[in-house]
Design a protein around this nucleic acid. Structure first.
Lengths: 346, 346
DNA sequence: CAAATTTTGATTTACGTACCTCAGATTTTC
DNA sequence: GAAAATCTGAGGTACGTAAATCAAAATTTG
């Protein structure tokens, strides 16, 4: 039988009230007595029954998710997953609130974090922007003892407790490796190949990191692949379409395209206008309705994906654990880079 | 505030005892009264608080995991993950027992299932063998109302409630697609290429399915790739090593190897003895210490993996849900095929 | 040494559900 | 219409923990 507080009281020769005071760090216990109780706790190997404790406290975990009001499919999907978690709230003892902020706006994110700080929730998840003022705001939240998880985009060297997202450098490396291997042959041969990179904005950390990983692998392992200057499409379909169309017109020898940002609809539209035989090899990020269709059609060759549902559920698990002072299962919380070819689409 | 049984009693104008009788399907309630109570339940949107209920019942979920006592790295890792779950038992209200059975032995598995049936656990997970007598045993478990999950290897068209493992046909297709794309170029050109397939045993369903997926893609999309007759290494390192060495000697033009079974140590040893310039392209399954090292060394080019930890945790979540008659989150429980290149090793 | 303060014990209620007993009411059966 | 069977209500205890109250004991302070 699992030991209970009653067993501790009996062994330590104190009352339930004293055990409770020790367990919950309440004042009014002499240090000798506290020692006896702690001794009993360790000797019995007592672990508090979280379910019973939460029941007694009639506790609900109040979490806040701060999400950019982006209109690309990935962010919309992320929103949906959070709403799904809200729907499951009652059976998971959580009370999740969504706060929308304008995208790529550090000032707005700071304001949101400050507002959240004021209401002292049990935890906060947010899509970080890599800026010093965000780090400062995060530090204030940490001082207030509010667990924090960054979602999708990280804030390294900050006070966040955890990052629920993929390793973007590794994602870029993977894309580079696939690009190099897929190109070796039909295009590359001895004469080399040209590759275009399409990003949303180089101001965003994830995009910079993906590019970094991609370039590293290409430079080291595929020296005769030449990377063109990065195209920044601001994740905007219309802009992206014209940029890609232009690029393909100017550089007739583009053999591959790595789209490391969101908003691939424009890219796909531009690709559909290219003669099949002359289509470049394309690697993109995020499995959405449009990239999935393009993958099935053969317009896109590979898609690297992060599962928004997993990220949201992981963030919630981690926030709960942090709120309870419990350890997290690192292996369970590692968000993986999914590689989809048209043959392993779920 | 979430409605409780007390609210139901008040609304329906009955006592707590009657509500309890309705909720738990106990006898002794006239159908008119039962109707009133059920009406109140739906109108309030009542959902039973599982944590409180389990506390009151002082319930623990007793699960049995039946695992083949295989000595390959993957199965050893699977064992370890289940042991990890056993270690977490106390805080998860589970009581997990591991039953070892000899591998590839349908008779022994039937005996194990029958023994398990006798002790009526709250759920069973097992690595299935695709045989009619196993289906019959599974049907008996279902009749007894014991939730069942197949692990790693499925038993389609049976009474199992869920399969916690990857889609092996899709895995084979993915391997075929990678093989075809990677080969197109340095080897393939116009003259075609020869590929060897190494399996454990064609009697095992997963291996058959992987081969099926692989062959389909190669035949359809890469007609000038020629697949040699399957080598069955029985997942035995020594045997595998000699088989691969022999095959490479006899067929000097082997451009690729697809190892779809476990026990890759022998394969790797054989590959290390081949001159670097003449090494074939290799795609293997399961990320273990040896395949990881081989991937880093460039001896293996890609590894398809299923995460044993995820499979075990998923099986437990599903068994719990089935035991409670709750729905499962399909998206959360889908086990993904991880593709590892040397650039995205975790 | 008395008064004030701190520490401790004993007891109680609560969380939401399960499950038990017993008495009283209602319905069914003969 | 009485006896038997069936339903229903009221009340309690339990699960393991939290948290509150109040009194008693021990300690410190003036």
């Amino acid at each position: 039988m699992k030991p209970t507080v009653h067993d501790i009281a009996k062994i330590a020769g104190v009352s339930l009230a004293t055990v409770d005071r020790v367990l919950n760090g309440r004042p009014g216990v002499r240090s000798v007595t506290r020692g006896r109780v702690e001794q009993a706790i360790t000797s019995l190997g007592y672990v508090r029954d979280l379910a019973a404790a939460n029941l007694a406290k009639s506790r609900t975990y109040s979490f806040v998710f701060i999400l950019p009001a982006n209109d690309n499919s990935f962010m919309i999907g992320l929103h949906e997953e959070v709403r799904g978690a809200v729907a499951r709230s009652s059976s998971e003892r959580t009370d999740i609130r969504i706060v929308d902020v304008p995208p790529f706006d550090a000032g707005a994110l700071v304001v949101a974090l400050e507002t959240v700080l004021a209401e002292k929730p049990a935890g906060v998840a947010f899509v970080a922007i890599d800026a010093p003022e965000i780090r400062a705001a995060a530090e204030r939240l940490r001082q207030a003892g509010i667990p924090m998880v960054t979602l999708v985009s990280d804030l390294p060297d900050s006070s966040r407790d955890h990052y629920a997202g993929i390793d973007n450098i590794a994602a870029g490396r993977t894309a580079g490796s696939l690009m190099g291997r897929f190109l070796s042959g039909p295009f590359l041969a001895e004469r080399g190949a040209t590759v275009a990179v399409l990003a949303g904005s180089m101001l965003v950390r994830d995009h910079r990191e993906r590019l970094e990983g991609f370039s590293t692998v290409i430079d080291q392992a595929y020296p005769n692949v030449h990377i063109l200057p990065v195209l920044e499409g601001r994740d905007d379909p219309a802009l992206t379409e014209t940029m890609i169309a232009d690029a393909l017109r100017r550089n007739a020898d583009i053999a591959g395209i790595y789209s490391l940002g969101a908003g691939n609809r424009g890219l796909i539209r531009a690709l559909h206008k290219v003669r099949v035989a002359r289509r470049p090899l394309v690697i993109a990020h995020e499995l959405t309705a449009s990239t999935r269709a393009a993958l099935a059609d053969g317009v896109i060759d590979a898609v690297l994906n992060q599962d928004a549902g997993h990220e949201v559920r992981s963030a919630i698990r981690v926030l709960k654990a942090k709120a309870d002072g419990l350890p997290v299962l690192a292996a369970q919380e590692r968000i993986r880079i999914d590689i989809f070819l048209k043959d392993n689409l779920p």
